[in-house]
């Protein structure tokens, strides 16, 4: 269970807080969506959870607890034990988020190399399993490929495989489908849903796209200017939005998609 309690983040030299005091809970096995336009603070929130905040360049307060473990104030060395192991992250641009010079298979197995004592062959076996579970065709062959040899959709599957190979308790998805074609988007969302059902991993999906969030999440939180302005069950937010900003966001979805989405 992830608990965020009154999180404040302000970058040095900025007047306004990037995150102005938000609280949010993600229960085990739950998928929560965090929606908002760029600059709303949703990515900063995600970075704070993933421990990717440039600490020296900002001030922060509040609590982020994952199963009771402090994610915000802990020592870097403590945090590193949690990164990858308890929290997996899938980023927006699969191509640039992968090391161009490292074989896909090694990147997927990297988390195991860091956090477990498994042997090379065991790591490879696990990596191949994870690749199969994200429905990649011929994992054996892809294992030895480099990122530039795969398509965006396949790479994003690999990124997901790399994030779940150690079965973390939380998966952070930072705009995981934004860089992909619409058909591939749908496949990836479908895959994430299946993984959630099968492995019971909690997920936090960050997106500016309400449609994507609606397909995947049971609850959504809408952020604006560093604050959560509305939070609730996905359907009730969609059918009965309370805040003007949410209404505007929903209105901005093209009608066809709103109907058939």
């Amino acid at each position: 269970m992830l608990v965020i309690n009154d999180l404040h983040v302000r970058f040095n030299g900025r007047e306004r807080e990037a995150v102005g005091g938000i609280s949010l809970t993600i229960n085990d096995g739950e998928i929560v969506g965090l929606v908002g336009e760029s600059g709303s603070g949703k990515t900063v929130t995600a970075m704070s959870i993933a421990g990717l905040l440039p600490r020296r360049q900002c001030t922060y307060s509040g609590d982020i607890l994952l199963d009771g473990k402090d994610l915000l104030h802990a020592q870097r060395s403590e945090l590193r034990k949690l990164h990858g192991k308890e929290i997996g992250v899938v980023f927006q641009e699969p191509m640039s988020s992968m090391d161009p010079l490292m074989k896909i298979g090694h990147q997927i197995g990297e988390v195991l190399r860091i956090h477990t004592d498994l042997s090379m062959s065991q790591i490879k076996e696990k990596a191949l399993e994870a690749m199969a579970s994200v429905e990649l065709q011929n994992p054996e062959q892809i294992y030895d490929c480099y990122p530039n040899e795969l398509s965006g959709g396949m790479l994003q599957r690999c990124m997901i495989a790399a994030a779940i190979v150690i079965e973390p308790s939380l998966l952070l998805l930072d705009e995981p489908t934004t860089a992909l074609d619409v058909t591939i988007q749908a496949q990836i969302l479908e895959l994430l849903k299946k993984l959630n059902a099968r492995l019971g991993i909690s997920m936090l999906l960050i997106s500016h796209n309400l449609n994507v969030v609606r397909k995947l999440c049971s609850r959504i939180a809408v952020m604006k200017r560093g604050l959560i302005v509305e939070i609730g069950d996905t359907e009730s937010v969609f059918l009965n939005p309370q805040h003007d900003y949410t209404k505007a966001l929903i209105k901005a979805i093209p009608t066809r998609e709103r109907r058939f989405g």
Partner: peptide, 25 residues
């Protein structure tokens, strides 16, 4: 670059980010 962020998110420390990823690149 973005791949460094990924490497950190996997729990690499600074030294292994350098030696395993950045140096070769």
């Amino acid at each position: 670059k973005a791949y460094v962020r990924t490497a950190i998110s996997r729990g690499n420390d600074r030294r292994s980010v350098l030696s395993r990823h950045v140096l070769k690149n």
